[in-house]
Design a binder for these strands. Structure first.
Lengths: 242, 242
DNA sequence: GAGTGGTCTAGACCACGAT
DNA sequence: TCGTGGTCTAGACCACTCT
């Protein structure tokens, strides 16, 4: 029933009777028009709001929203997004050392702060296709960190658990993708020609409440082995909303 | 009040009393526990559901969801995402011709189908930094298409309006980003060395209901002029949901 | 059949904007 | 002051799952 009302309202919007910025009829009017109770109507309205069709201003009314069609969504995971199957991950090194400027800035460390640095090489088709560097602030005697060092040869899910325990909720992540000229170290490890370009994907994991950084990772990928596909968010929200 | 209940429930989840897959107390129990009515409690639950904390199974109960932390979101717009300001857009050509294989596949055309092809060069700092190719199915005498040709030297918003009229709602878009070796044509137009790599961003705009393609665009960008930043979706849904 | 979540209702009080 | 949307309530019926 509330879904039917949603469709009705969508029609009046899309069919052009209403344009962005226009006000919808008041809720009491719409209750009569569609023959539903207030709560039911409001359920419809909030669904429309979630789908980006409308927004409401307390004391004034509900308005048609200009749709934001420039938002995209994608799924990314360091090991699952390469263009060919990962068949081996090799642990290169686990070190505790002074952070570089880049790492210091991103992890908001003190000057000369120390970090745990885990370096891994990702193989596909017997070839090294990606180099992964995970930096975590080093806090001596923290079980999490010590564990992280001990088990650093395991990757992926286990990695996350070790780093954050049960804190899988309440995290925000930020990803930056660009193309950079590979430095000597990367060229050697990925066995590519000097001066070649590679993808650089940096991933920063932060706490959601105060944005304090937990890890800062760099992922260098041979450019033929990565591409990204993103889509406009689904409208399927309908099923999730209530 | 319902927000307070949300916080309460989050606590019981995050503090580890509940793990993914576990069932929450029944709604009637929680009503008593938090001293709220059914509708209020359900408002809290649907908020939690939207934020990805829980899901519910009719006839059984509400369950803690394993958070999907691999979803990212970003905003993209052909002209607003370059690393430097766009100061000029030059229309190179508007042609009606037989579609290439790639275009035919993506627009689901008949064999030897014809398309309107609009080609533009994007300038920044007096340099050509990106080449844009927009393909739309050619349907003779369709006002939309004819207008598109007439006004093809205008870009961005106007472009969208001409192509889709009031249909700004109900569209889905798909983006693919990769790095490819520039062909001769691109090298000339962007004045880069032969064999250099460029970003290739393809954008396919479809109708949301039947996924029928409307336009298929290719965007070639000099690799120094583009990078992408994406974030985990906000939890701010709270404000949007009701 | 008992318990669960999904939906809907009629009525109430509030904070807010416009006048 | 009046109309608007935001919130909350108590009670009802339904379809579903489990035993």
């Amino acid at each position: 029933m509330y879904l039917a009302v949603v469709e009705e309202i969508k029609k009046t919007i899309v069919s052009g009777h209403l344009s962005p910025g226009d006000m919808l009829k008041s809720e009491s009017e719409m209750m009569k028009e569609y023959g539903v109770s207030r709560m039911t109507l409001r359920k419809s309205l909030s669904l429309l709001s979630n789908q980006g069709y409308i927004y409401s201003v307390p004391g004034k009314g509900n308005f048609v929203k200009k749709p934001d069609t420039d938002i995209y969504q994608f799924r990314f995971n360091r090991y699952d997004n390469l263009l060919s199957k990962v068949d081996r991950i090799k642990l290169l090194a686990v070190t505790v050392n002074t952070a570089s400027k880049d790492v210091t800035d991103n992890l908001l460390l003190q000057e000369n702060g120390r970090v745990v640095r885990v370096e891994r090489l990702v193989y596909s088709d017997e070839q090294a296709v990606a180099l992964e560097i995970v930096n975590t602030q080093y806090i001596p005697n923290t079980p999490v960190v010590e564990d992280r060092i001990n088990f650093a040869n395991y990757a992926n899910d286990l990695d996350k658990k070790l780093a954050f325990g049960k804190e899988t909720f309440g995290l925000t992540k930020e990803l930056t993708i660009k193309v950079v000229r590979a430095d000597e170290d990367i060229c050697t490890k990925l066995s590519i020609a000097p001066g070649e370009d590679v993808f650089e994907i940096s991933e920063k994991i932060m706490k959601q409440d105060d944005y304090s950084p937990l890890t800062y990772s760099l992922f260098y990928i041979r450019k033929e082995y990565f591409m990204l596909t993103a889509k406009t968010p689904e409208e399927d929200a309908s099923k999730k909303i209530f």
